[in-house]
Design a protein around this nucleic acid. Structure first.
Length: 815
DNA sequence: AGCACGCCGACT
DNA sequence: GTCGGCGTGCTC
């Protein structure tokens, strides 16, 4: 008896056992996909993780439906990585599988069977039921499994169809398995009769009365001799400047023969490679990193200016390329990809692969295969967090750029992984080195440097910013009191903006919109329209003149009167990027203004358009959220400003000071340009605040020292681990009861600080009420044991019938 | 995640 | 008397 253990791409904790034939068993490898029947009438793309001979005792395993791969599409390293991730972030292995694999490699939802042949002897070969199916197929040619089940009035149709497939009377629709189609490009070559020496003169003789055809043939010879590569029809036509019909005539005459090659969609123009800038300082830093790598697997690189940083990366990458290794370069957001891409391509050309979530399914599969089938050439992958799932087989180096960035943590759906921490594990499993890079390293990394778990290499950028780039803290309280404000702009800011613009400099305005988008308030009764699904105020969006909920996407037209008191005196309060844009246009009617936020960057190339326009100085003032501190080209920026830093600073989160420092510091760092006296203005009600004071003098060292003491005193990361448990239910009272039950059971079992069950300030989203429980796990306590207790608590929670439909999510290392 | 089974309300 | 609501439990 032969069995395989598979993962199903669903949120299920278990693996499943299927039976296979001896031939299949010999053929199948771990990491191959198989199509398996699962449940009543579904087929899933499962992944083989084990082959064995132990028959399950409690049930009769089903047979697999079909093999899908000749060779593994997932490596053993990946499987180990997935197991670790599922365990560490407390989710099902199926969820990791689902998140990791490009969806085009998973089956389409509806499985159909197709008519193929009719047996010679229908009577002898088919049972009555099979005959019914074949009959139906002759009329319809394609049937879904559900339809088959209806025709023969049976629940389990798989064995029947299986037999039909074996006898080759029907087939599963191949299209389902070939959801991925490589893009084909048309090429031409000379027909065999014209490939010998002397053919050219023969051809010229044939076409002596057809100058256009002659031109085309000469052009073809030119292309062939110059760059002996296949000639695409497109290239030939553009090269020779003749009409496509001429080529068609020659193909009809059998001079040329068309053929097709699959085109690699993701290719870059191999622009002229720039010679390396050999710089002693860069060499020195790189050597230090390498020295550290000889002792430690993880090294933190800090305090290196932007320009030098890229050179250090390139230097290091080159070394691993020479070792024919794969290099993974991680960035926190897609915007950053576009901003470094040019430098990378001009240096490494076609050795580069870019990967992020906005690629379409076919492109993702292409990249997947490229990484999987990586040969002896060395390869660089630049990508966002999902790149950690690519099937590396020879990973040598990982670089995590802007390592501190919270965008590296996936919070929305399982697996809720932190890219930095996960990739360290991936590197460890693959025997690769990891370089964490940031001018403001995360507290976790600083802690690990101090405890000598990580190595560290420091650059020399420390003092540059503070000496040359002036940081102005602008006191809003004072400005309001003295009536120096126009909208959200202080006179200082307006003046500096005018100056910068007058000097042909660009301006960047930062406004985090978190919780501060404009709301519509009734002046008579103070009523603010709320979302009916979530306990939040609706925010006003001018361009469509509607109110919108940022949590569930609900929209309504802007009301003309108050729904509570019918008054028509409604006013807009608070502000977001959109309103800032409006104010800027009023203050500077001559300036060209652009906005960079989630609303203006839908679509794959939206970023590039805005960033490119700004780079080309077609934009004078750029307003944006977090994104402006990441991918924007600051080379001609003379001034940047934060409109109101307080809502960033006073976000209810133990990390808010750390985050605020990092954001401001990055803005300053970006604004800083050699030999220029640029300015950063920060508007605030608390100019004396310690975070702002430390940012102003660029003293991250001191800042982290103080903050780490605080974290230690109140036991917060990095001095403990946090696990956040979210409970959701539509019934407020039931949820309250359930979360209290959960809390009390947990406290009984865990000798640890457990916080909650707290009701968050936004206590309802999409009609679901929310309660939070947080667990602090000190370093000396075993994390796996704690997790197992949490899991057991969840299990007994689910066993209580009154609570089982309360939704629970677990977020490990929530940031 | 689906999907079927199963037990209570508004319809012909 | 039945159709259909969605709560509950299972999938190798």
């Amino acid at each position: 008896m032969h069995f395989i253990e598979v993962i199903i791409p669903l949120a299920l904790a278990k693996t499943f056992t299927y039976q296979v034939s001896e031939a299949e068993f010999a053929y199948i490898q771990e990491g191959c996909r198989v199509a398996v029947p699962f449940g009543k009438s579904k087929i899933y793309t499962a992944l083989v993780i084990k082959k064995h001979h132990q028959a399950p005792e409690l049930y009769e395993p089903k047979e697999i439906f079909q093999l899908l791969d000749e060779k593994p599409i997932v490596t053993q390293h990946q499987l180990n990585f997935w197991v670790w991730m599922a365990e560490y972030y407390m989710c099902g292995i199926g969820e990791v599988y689902h998140a990791a694999i490009p969806s085009a490699l998973l089956l389409e939802s509806e499985t159909v069977i197709k008519f193929k042949n009719l047996p010679n002897d229908v009577q002898a070969d088919l049972t009555d039921e099979q005959y019914l199916i074949m009959e139906a197929l002759q009329k319809q040619s394609v049937l879904t499994l559900l339809e088959v089940a209806k025709i023969i009035d049976k629940k389990n149709v798989f064995p029947l169809i299986q037999q039909l497939i074996k006898k080759d009377y029907v087939s599963l629709d191949e299209e389902i398995y070939e959801a991925y189609k490589p893009k084909m490009l048309r090429y031409v070559k000379l027909s065999d009769s014209y490939t010998k020496a002397g053919s050219l003169s023969e051809l010229l003789e044939i076409t002596k009365n057809a100058p256009k055809q002659k031109q085309l043939i000469l052009g073809y010879y030119q292309l062939i001799t110059h760059q002996n590569v296949p000639v695409s029809t497109k290239k030939l036509i553009s090269h020779t400047q003749v009409a496509p019909t001429v080529l068609k005539t020659l193909i009809d005459k059998n001079v040329f023969e068309p053929y097709f090659l699959s085109q690699d969609r993701i290719s870059f123009d191999q622009s002229d490679k720039i010679d390396e800038v050999k710089n002693e300082w860069i060499e020195k830093i790189s050597n230090q990193i390498e020295l550290q790598f000889s002792q430690k697997d993880i090294v933190v690189l800090k305090d290196v200016t932007k320009q030098n940083q890229l050179e250090v990366y390139f230097n290091l990458i080159e070394k691993y390329l020479n070792l024919k290794k794969q290099i993974l370069f991680l960035v926190p957001e897609i915007v950053v990809v576009s901003s470094v891409l040019k430098e990378f391509t001009s240096r490494f050309g076609n050795q580069l692969i870019v990967y992020h979530s906005r690629y379409n399914n076919n492109e993702k599969v292409e990249i997947w295969n490229k990484v999987l089938n990586h040969n002896q050439t060395g390869q660089i992958i630049v990508g966002t967090r999902s790149s950690v799932f690519l099937p590396f087989n020879n990973l040598g180096l990982v670089i995590v750029d802007q390592e501190h960035d919270v965008a590296y943590k996936q919070n929305e759906s399982a697996p809720r992984y932190h890219t930095r921490d996960s990739v360290i594990m991936l590197a460890h499993l693959s025997g690769a080195k990891t370089l964490l890079s940031s001018s403001t390293p995360s507290f976790e990394s600083i802690y690990n440097i101090k405890s000598e778990k990580y190595g560290v290499v420091e650059g020399d950028s420390q003092d540059l910013f503070s000496t040359q780039t002036e940081v102005v803290l602008c006191d809003l309280k004072d400005k309001y009191k003295r009536k120096r404000m126009t909208g959200h702009f202080s006179d200082t800011l307006i003046e500096e903006m005018s100056d910068a613009l007058a000097n042909q400099k660009q301006v960047v305005l930062y406004q985090n919109r978190r919780g501060y988008a404009p709301i519509l308030e009734c002046i008579s009764c103070g009523h603010v329209p709320q979302c009916s699904q979530c306990n939040v105020s609706l925010t006003y969006h001018q361009h469509k003149n509607q109110l919108r909920c940022h949590y569930c996407g609900y929209t309504m037209a802007k009301p003309s009167h108050c729904h509570a008191c019918s008054s028509v005196d409604l006013s807009l309060k608070g502000f977001g990027t959109e309103q800032v844009e409006k104010e800027v246009r009023e203050l500077f009617p001559e300036a060209k203004v652009a906005r960079l936020d989630q609303d203006t960057t839908r679509g794959k190339h939206a970023f590039e358009l805005i960033l490119e326009a700004f780079k080309e100085q077609e934009t004078d003032i750029l307003i944006g959220t977090q994104m402006v501190t990441k991918g924007v080209d600051f080379s001609n920026v003379g001034l940047s400003a934060v409109l109101n830093v307080d809502n960033l600073l006073y976000h209810p989160d133990f990390r808010s000071f750390e985050k605020t420092y990092q954001i401001l510091s990055h803005l300053i760092e970006q604004t800083h340009q050699e030999k220029q006296s640029n300015k950063v203005i920060i508007q605030t009600y608390n100019p004396q605040h310690e975070v702002l004071q430390k940012v102003k003098i660029h003293d991250y060292e001191k800042f982290t020292q103080e903050q780490l003491i605080e974290r230690q005193t109140f036991i917060y990361p990095p001095f403990c681990r946090l696990i956040k448990i979210t409970l959701k239910h539509k019934d407020y009272d039931k949820l309250k009861q359930a979360s209290e039950w959960f809390y009390s059971v947990l406290v009984q079992k865990l000798p640890l600080p457990v916080l909650g069950p707290e009701e968050p300030s936004i206590n309802r989203i999409r009609n679901q009420y929310i309660r939070l429980i947080q667990i602090k796990i000190p370093q000396k306590i075993s994390l796996p044991k704690t997790k197992s207790i949490i899991q057991k608590t969840i299990n007994s929670f689910d066993a209580v019938s009154a609570y089982r439909n309360v939704q629970i999510t677990v977020n490990v290392d929530n940031v």
